[in-house]
Amino acid sequence: MTGTAALDLTIRNDLAEIGRLAEEVEAFCEAKGLGGGIAHALNLSLDELLANTISYGYDDAAIHAIEVSLSATPGGVTMVIRDDARAFDPTLAPDPDIDAEARRSPDRRPRHPYRPGDDGRDRLSTGRRQKPADLGEALGRVLAHRNGDRRGHYTGDDRGGHGHDPARPGGQQLRA
């Protein structure tokens, strides 16, 4: 291994930050000798999670900081996103009605037909059956599995963020 063990970045709640972050993630993976597939999985996951947070998580138009950290571990990469946006737990959200959405609102983001595999891999590590919040989250999850060590998992621990309760930092983790 070369370079630092971790990448720590703070970005603004602006979608334009996602491209800058992607460059940093690619450089980090290259320095760690991690393959392009892992960089792709991490960037897709970051893109989808951050886009949801930035687009739907804030009730005001103010600038907010979002902390992103990546650390290389013997088993892969652990990614933590920490923000002070409104909490959202995808495991508690109702299953989307895919057909109804398509009928009613053709311009909404597409919902995803993806469902957990029977082998139990594609589930939240909380033990609940996975309920993909949307296409993007499902994509990130599957790519993380494919590029991971099969123990890869996603932990949605979104309890409102460090800005609200320092004792219980919110964040989202994904291991690829």
């Binding site: 893109d47 886009a51 983001r109």
Partner: peptide
């Protein structure tokens, strides 16, 4: 080199 769900959405709109 890269597409996310936001890009897929645009292609879906194009298909429609």
């Amino acid at each position: 080199s890269y597409i996310s769900s936001a890009g897929l959405r645009v292609l879906l709109l194009a298909a429609r």
